[in-house]
């Protein structure tokens, strides 16, 4: 008699989200180091071009510099970043850029995987680079029911936001480095005011409240336990493709 084994796992896609919590007043002088040295060096050492680069001045890590990179393998990811950091050009240019003082307070390097809900939220009608204002939100989930938490966000909140002009760039789950279990959503908006209006409406809409209430009263607790919300502006030339290019 042979043991019944769990099925094989094949993971083909990772997203590296790098959040640089900058020291106040030290972000503007950091931008040339990234643009002129880091990103050209990414190409030299085989780090994929970031899917998006953002600046954030409204949220719990502000001022924030953030970017997103897609990988197929984490061993490859480790090898490429090691090569990048070992290049003396990087240390030299970084040393020069930091001569006037430190620039980053802390960095948060997170590995994400696509949420199972993403495919259902892809909007093929939206195409091209997405400028405007983006919201990056980390939703803490009930640890015993993370999949239901993802579903609640994807089936209740995000369609409400889509109907009010929000475009879902992507939905993710934390895999390494962040709080487990979190759902991460990135939405884009044509301007700040449409995001604000939709965001306030979502919190007070009676229909949405009824849906959340029904789930809560059935289970005795909420599926989502609170969210950290950041507002970001994509840097010119680094606006992400619609649906982060996933069509």
């Amino acid at each position: 008699m042979t043991a019944t084994l769990a099925p094989r796992v094949t993971i083909e896609e990772y997203y590296e989200l790098r959040l640089y919590e900058m020291l106040p007043g030290r972000l503007p002088g950091f931008l040339p180091l990234m643009e002129e040295t880091a990103i050209p060096q990414f190409a030299v050492h085989g780090i994929p071009r970031p899917l998006a680069i953002w600046e954030g001045h409204a949220g719990p890590m502000a001022p924030l510099y953030a970017y997103l990179i897609r990988w197929r393998s984490l061993d490859e990811r480790m090898a490429r970043w090691n090569a990048f950091y070992a290049d003396p050009l990087w240390s030299e240019r970084m040393g020069a850029n930091f001569a006037s003082g430190p620039r980053l307070r802390r960095t948060h390097v997170l590995i994400l995987r696509p949420s199972h809900t993403w495919a259902s939220l892809v909007d093929p009608a939206v195409t091209g680079p997405q400028s405007g204002i983006h919201e990056l939100a980390f939703h803490n989930l009930d640890n015993d029911n993370p999949a239901r938490g993802h579903d609640a966000i994807a089936q209740t909140d995000l369609p409400f936001l889509q109907a009010r002009g929000g475009h879902v760039l992507g939905t993710f789950m934390t895999w390494y480095g962040g709080g487990m279990n979190q759902a991460i959503t990135v939405t884009s908006w044509k301007d700040a005011e449409s995001w604000r209006a939709a965001s306030v409406a979502l919190k007070s809409d009676p229909g949405i409240t009824r849906l959340h209430d029904a789930s809560r009263t059935r289970r005795g607790t909420t599926l989502v336990q609170g969210s950290d919300v950041h507002l970001l502006r994509p840097l010119p030339g680094w606006e992400p493709a619609a649906n982060f290019g996933r069509v």
Binding site: G25, L27, P28, A58, A62, I133, A192, E193, W195, R233
Partner: peptide, 21 residues
């Protein structure tokens, strides 16, 4: 909100703030 977003970004590179840092 638009004014806040533009100002918060401008504040980070405001000459008086930068000189103070």
């Amino acid at each position: 909100l638009d004014t806040q977003l533009r100002a918060a970004e401008a504040l980070d590179s405001h000459p008086a703030v930068t000189a103070q840092r």
